[in-house]
């Protein structure tokens, strides 16, 4: 069942004719794990690692500087 919903979800962006919800329909979206960056602390650790090992940075947020590692 989850697999079917998973596959359907991949096409849901284009399938939606009306985007958005009413305020009382936000109970799922309001869950912490549905936040776009639900773990900012660990995201920052990951970003810093990749910043120092690859030629790209940022995207989700500012690319910035801040370290002599790159």
């Amino acid at each position: 069942m989850k697999l079917i919903i998973f596959i359907l979800s991949l096409t849901s962006i284009t399938a939606c004719s009306e985007l958005g919800v009413k305020p009382w329909e936000r109970n799922v979206l309001a869950k912490p794990e549905m936040s776009l960056d639900s773990t900012p602390l660990t995201s920052a650790l990951d970003d810093h690692t990749y910043f120092s090992k690859e030629a790209s940075s940022g995207g989700r947020g500012f690319g910035g500087g801040g370290c002599g590692c790159n």
Binding site: P32, S35, D37, S43, A44, D47, H48, G66
Partner: peptide, 18 residues
């Protein structure tokens, strides 16, 4: 809106809060 990160500042908006 933003939580300052070490060198890469996140600017992810949270459009909802439980």
């Amino acid at each position: 809106l933003a939580v300052a990160t070490s060198s890469l500042m996140s600017v992810t908006p949270d459009v909802h809060a439980e």
